[in-house]
């Protein structure tokens, strides 16, 4: 009896190992950030669909690569009909959809939000693992680290102070990807000084009092919104008048992919300009 149970167990484990050894052949991604990681690492033909945002150049750094792939909108029915054998999702993907897909026996891999370099490396490795593309993931990380090293020169003298200021007065501290980007570029962050390490709403008054050396503004979206109007407030304009201002371009700032290095480079340029200036 025990032996037979052992045999059955062995069979199941063996089957499971066999299944794991076979890389998935129809992978579907339902989140902008997993879209881009999968686009970088997947074998030709392995990725069958990415989220609709991936082809939008105002959000995605890989819009061109994503354009030929069918888009999904994160809806359970739509995803099921594409018959994926693996779904990769982000931490913000709808938990209801993920639960339903799992009930339909579609494996779902949920990737956490990357808030720092370690998180980015871990997600690249994990994407390589679930796609069966470990070697490609290792190569990507090696290239990422080499590119990063080129940008990492210690700032001479005191670090200038930057403030991130986006729609609705949202500011990000060091516990966020945007915060990490400006820290890597050699800036201190106003949000950290004011007790918003993870980010939050920063009242315009407090921003003015903090008087940062560089203002990093959120990008404007098409159409109108009151939250966006704040970025045009005369008081903020007056603050930015005699200061350098940089506008975050979403594709490089939103997702923890090697593309953040473009944002780091942009911010490093801004810092060098500040330190060379008067």
């Amino acid at each position: 009896m025990v032996a037979r149970l052992g045999l059955i167990l062995g069979l199941i484990v063996g089957l499971a190992q066999h299944a794991a050894a076979q890389p998935p052949r129809r992978v579907l991604s339902m989140n902008l950030c997993t879209d881009q990681l999968a686009l970088m690492l997947a074998a030709p033909g392995q990725l069958v669909s990415v989220s609709a945002l991936a082809a939008d150049p105002s959000s995605s750094a890989m819009a061109k690569e994503a354009a030929p792939l069918p888009a999904n909108h994160g809806l359970t029915e739509e995803i099921y009909l594409m018959q994926p054998d693996l779904v990769v999702a982000g931490a913000w993907s709808s938990p209801e959809t993920i639960r339903l897909l799992q009930r339909l026996n579609i494996p779902v891999e949920v990737f956490p939000v990357e808030n720092d370099l370690a998180g980015i490396r871990a997600n690249i490795l994990r994407m390589g693992k679930v796609l069966g593309r470990d070697a490609e993931a290792q190569r990507l990380i090696a290239r990422f680290d080499a590119d990063l090293a080129l940008l990492s020169d210690p700032a001479p003298g005191p670090r200038p102070r930057a403030a991130l200021y986006a729609v609705n007065g949202y500011s990000s501290g060091h516990n966020s990807l945007a915060g990490q980007i400006i820290a890597l570029a050699g800036f201190d962050n106003i949000a950290d000084e004011l007790g918003l390490p993870a980010g939050g709403i920063l009242a315009l008054e407090r921003l003015l009092i903090a008087d940062p050396d560089l203002l990093v503004e959120g990008r404007r979206y098409p159409g109108a919104a009151r939250g966006q109007e704040l970025l045009e407030h005369p008081a903020l304009k007056a603050l930015g008048q005699d200061k350098s201002t940089v506008v975050m371009s979403d594709p490089d700032w939103v997702c923890g992919t090697p593309y953040i290095l473009r944002a780091v480079a942009q911010m490093r340029e801004a810092r060098l300009a500040l330190q060379e200036g008067p």
């Binding site: 729609v167 609705n168 979206y221 098409p222 159409g223 109108a224 919104a225 009151r226 939250g227 966006q228």
Partner: peptide, 13 residues
């Protein structure tokens, strides 16, 4: 229906 992702938040205002 606004193309701006933050417009819907305005309903509260």
């Amino acid at each position: 229906l606004s193309p701006n992702p933050f417009a819907a938040n305005e309903i509260v205002f």
